[in-house]
Design a protein around this nucleic acid. Structure first.
Lengths: 155, 155
DNA sequence: TATAATTAAATTGTATGCAATTGAAATGCA
DNA sequence: TGCATTTCAATTGCATACAATTTAATTATA
């Protein structure tokens, strides 16, 4: 492919990924509105429903989000009554995030969302599984490159 | 898969897509910094390098971005001297976006970016092509569902 | 132990991103 | 022609995102 062609929008892998991710995220909106959650708040709750009592760093690490994004988001979840934010007695730098009763109970109201979303995606089960694995693998490769790039800066 | 399992973060197709797209976009940052562009500004320039003289709607349509995003972004590109924004004489509602000489010349400085990014992605040519096609196809399917959903609201 | 280095979260500043609304211009149609 | 509808861009309000910096707490080490 020529340098000229490589600059065309339709040939961009990243743009295809970027626009597809945005449009898929929008599919959640009508479903999440019932719960009073945004997409980012929803994935945060997904983590907490699996692993209650994480600190901001652990939570952000799983979601690939930094404290600049997590801090206001968690304050919002707290003000909505889904979580509590308390300093860790063992290490006062850490902030422990824990589900409230309401926050834990919200999981039941969210239980149909994954299937609903799957239907809206128009994917078959096999396609969805393959796509997810592929994305996870590409993400791993990118992270590997990022690590190498950082190591280069150090050396 | 159980309803319980479907709520786990690692089983989310959308989160895999969302996080992968974000991390891949970050790979552009060091490359684009030299040009003084953000990623969103870069993809806007990609469109204009292919099709100069589009209005905001046409430009936003190609990028899947609405006027709320495009307006400030285009004002920024204008203030940086890459584009001009002028009302269309034929239809005063439309705002024509055109490249300046500098904006057109910037294309040459960007010509290596696609290949550089490709190297950083860790993908083979075949993988990249397959991934891009896959994303474009999934995006089409999602858009189809969105259309159906809107038609339902009308009816 | 005193201090340097590190770590966690918060903060600051900038740039998206989108739903909903507004205002101006163009179009449709009675 | 005259008015309702539609269309386009801008605006408003809210919620991310992230780089860079700051603050407070902890750890490493001389």
């Amino acid at each position: 492919m020529s340098q000229e062609d490589m600059l065309k929008l339709e040939n961009q892998v990243c743009f295809a990924l970027y626009s597809c991710a945005k449009e898929m995220t929008k599919l959640y909106q009508p479903l999440l509105k019932h719960l009073g959650l945004t997409y980012t708040q929803y994935i945060t709750m997904l983590v907490l429903w699996e692993h209650d009592r994480l600190n901001v760093k652990e939570l952000g690490g799983r979601l690939f989000l930094d404290s600049g994004t997590m801090t206001p988001l968690l304050k919002k979840l707290e003000s909505n009554g889904w979580i509590t934010r308390t300093r860790d007695n063992q290490d006062e730098r850490s902030l422990l995030i824990e589900l409230t009763e309401d926050g834990a109970a919200l999981k039941d109201k969210a239980k149909d969302i994954p299937l609903q979303l799957f239907c809206r995606s128009g994917l078959s089960v096999e396609e969805a599984l393959a796509l997810r694995s592929r994305m996870q693998e590409v993400l791993c490769r990118i992270q590997r490159f990022q690590s190498v790039a950082e190591a280069d800066l150090d050396g």
